[in-house]
Structures are given as structure tokens and as C-alpha cells.
């Protein structure tokens, strides 16, 4: 039975999280703008961060904001932004948990809940990356996406806490959707890093030989951004594969066939194939770099369309997921 108090608490926590996310996003934006005036701006490009995978740094700093970097005074807004992001994340997490407790089930049974959980995963992925990789320039973009999505969730998609339709009453809901949410969160970090990589790379080509000006010039080196994106996709792709396979097993138990080209399945397949193309392109001469980057962005676009477009515009077996 839904507990009205918990449900209300959950709603308030989500609203609070939105407010703090917006503050964090503005602080990141302020930092990005301010850095252009800082004389020490170029020094950040030579920072010693080993980029090689999730285990790159042997002893991650205890504070997510304390990524190694010179000029501590210039880092204050960035630390504030990271602290605000962490605070917003905690509120957001509490909100999602309260929703789960209020409905006594996994808190991702309709589109509102899926949005709150998927954005939570995106922030979580960002915070995990922030501990070990130079991803702070992704912050403003990821937080913009999270704030916007949560804003739409509470206004357009809002569904009160309640029980599920029979088709969703399965432990596969927990497994299949959780995997999709985690993959989505990490794909978001990958997509943000890829977009900035493409931006930086275009600026590099334009200003070949001279110092790159403008916003792109203040971003990490193209190779760094590419490595972040690659690490993110390398992690998220098997998780997405698992989500699709778990979905197939559930479909077999629920509808009598494990694959039926339902629009949701089709777009999950398209997403998977595009990311597979990205991973292959990364080791193909002539495709590495820019073209591979566009494939990754196409994969992310397919992922988003599967969630937004397929739910809202196409009728299919997954339509009962509710808006």
C-alpha cells in the first residue's frame, strides 16, 4: 500500500535536488566562464592525470572535488560545484529510495520514476568519474541534462506512487530496468565526453599550430576527452548488452517469445548496434576519432529516443509502462 507521507517526502526531496542541481550547474558555468580570465588557465592541460581506466589512480582522493590540479584558489568554485552536486545527489538518492519505499517496489515502474532513477544514475556515474578522471568540464552539461530531465519529470511525466500493472510484476523489472538505468547513466558521461571531444578536436584542426582559443581551448586535450569517453563506453556497453538480454529473457517469460521486434526492442537493438559500430570504429583506420565519436553520439541519441520517442509516440507492447 502506498504510504502517502513517504510519497510526499519523495516528491519534496526531488524538488530540493532539482534546486541544488541548478545551483551546482550555475557554479560550474561560472567556473568555466571565469577560467578564461585566469592567467594560469593553460596549466591545467599538463596536469598529471593518468588516464587508463577506472583503476587509473591508485589512491583516489577522499573528496571528489580534490582532483589533482594546480592553483588551489582558482579551484574553489569547482570544489563548491562538486560539493553541491554531491549534496543534490544525496537528496535525489533519498527521493528515489523514498519513492521505492512508498510504493513497496523498485522505484522505476513508470516513466516518471524511470526518469528520476536514470538521472540519478547519470549523476552517480559523473561523480564516480570525477574521483579518477579529469571530467569536471563535463559537469555543466551533465547537470544541465539532469536538471532539465528532472524538471520535465515533475511537471509533465509526474505519476503518483502506486502499484504496478500485472505485466510489470516481476523480479525481472528490477534486473532488466536497473541494468538499463546504469548503462544509461554511464552512456551519458560517455556522450558528454564525446561531444566535448568533437568540439575540442574541431577547434584543434581549425587553430592548428597555435593556441586554441575560446571555450574549446579551455577544455582538456582531445586525447584525454576521447579516453574518458572510451572508458565510459567500455563499461556501459556490456551493461547495456546485459540489459537487452535480461529483457529478452523476461519477454520470453511474459509474452512467449524472447524477441519480437517490438519498437522498444528494436530501438534497444539499434542502440546496441550503433555502440558496437563505435567500438569497432575505434580500432579502424580512417574511422578512429571524429567518425567514431559521431557513432557514439548516434548511439546515445537512439538510447534517448527509445526512452522518450518510443514511449510517447509509438504504440507497442511496452506502452503500458505509462507516462
Amino acid at each position: 500500500m502506498p504510504t502517502p507521507l513517504l510519497a510526499e517526502l519523495s516528491d519534496r526531496l526531488i524538488y530540493s535536488a532539482i534546486a541544488v542541481y541548478a545551483l551546482a550547474m550555475l557554479t560550474y558555468a561560472y567556473q568555466a566562464a571565469r577560467r578564461s580570465q585566469s592567467p594560469a588557465q593553460r596549466s591545467r592541460l599538463v596536469e598529471a592525470v593518468a588516464v587508463g581506466g577506472p583503476s587509473a589512480s591508485p589512491a583516489p582522493p577522499p573528496n571528489p572535488a580534490a582532483v589533482s590540479r594546480p592553483a588551489p584558489a582558482a579551484r574553489r568554485p569547482e570544489r563548491i560545484a562538486a560539493a553541491l552536486t554531491t549534496l543534490a545527489f544525496v537528496l535525489h538518492l533519498a527521493g528515489v529510495l523514498a519513492r521505492g519505499l512508498a510504493a513497496s517496489r523498485a522505484p522505476w515502474g513508470n516513466m516518471y520514476e524511470f526518469t528520476t532513477a536514470a538521472t540519478l544514475a547519470a549523476t552517480a556515474a559523473y561523480l564516480v568519474f570525477l574521483r579518477r578522471q579529469p571530467v569536471r568540464d563535463l559537469g555543466v552539461w551533465i547537470l544541465a541534462l539532469v536538471t532539465l530531465s528532472l524538471g520535465l519529470a515533475v511537471t509533465v511525466l509526474y505519476t503518483p506512487a502506486g502499484d504496478l500493472v500485472p505485466a510489470l510484476n516481476s523480479y525481472w523489472l528490477v534486473i532488466h530496468v536497473a541494468a538499463a538505468i546504469i548503462a544509461g547513466g554511464v552512456f551519458t558521461v560517455g556522450a558528454a565526453a564525446t561531444a566535448l571531444y568533437l568540439l575540442r578536436r574541431r577547434a584543434d584542426a581549425r587553430d592548428a599550430g597555435v593556441a586554441v582559443a575560446g571555450y574549446a581551448g579551455r577544455l582538456p586535450a582531445a586525447r584525454t576527452l576521447e579516453d574518458i569517453a572510451h572508458t565510459a563506453h567500455l563499461f556501459a556497453f556490456p551493461v547495456w548488452t546485459f540489459a537487452v538480454l535480461a529483457g529478452a529473457i523476461w519477454a520470453e517469460d511474459s509474452w512467449g517469445r524472447y524477441w519480437g521486434w517490438d519498437p522498444k526492442e528494436t530501438w534497444a537493438f539499434i542502440t546496441w548496434v550503433l555502440y558496437a559500430a563505435y567500438l569497432h570504429a575505434q580500432s579502424t583506420a580512417g574511422w578512429r576519432g571524429t567518425k567514431a565519436g559521431w557513432l557514439a553520439l548516434a548511439g546515445y541519441a537512439a538510447f534517448l529516443f527509445n526512452f522518450v520517442g518510443v514511449n510517447l509516440f509509438i504504440n507497442g507492447l511496452h506502452s503500458y509502462a505509462g507516462v
Binding site: 521486434w261 519498437p263 528494436t266 530501438w267 537493438f269 539499434i270 548496434v273 550503433l274 558496437a276 559500430a277 569497432h280 570504429a281 580500432s283 579502424t284 583506420a285 580512417g286 574511422w287 557513432l295 548516434a298 537512439a302 518510443v310 509509438i314
Partner: peptide, 21 residues
Amino acid sequence: SMRTAVLLLLALALAAVPGSL
């Protein structure tokens, strides 16, 4: 070749789209 594989993967993704629309 890998280049053909990438192109075929891209073609497969595009070919799957009309069936959903």
C-alpha cells in the same frame, strides 16, 4: 575488413529503423 564491418553495422542500425515506425 574492419571498415566493412563498421559500415555494415551502421547499415544494420539504419535498416532496423523503418520497422519501428
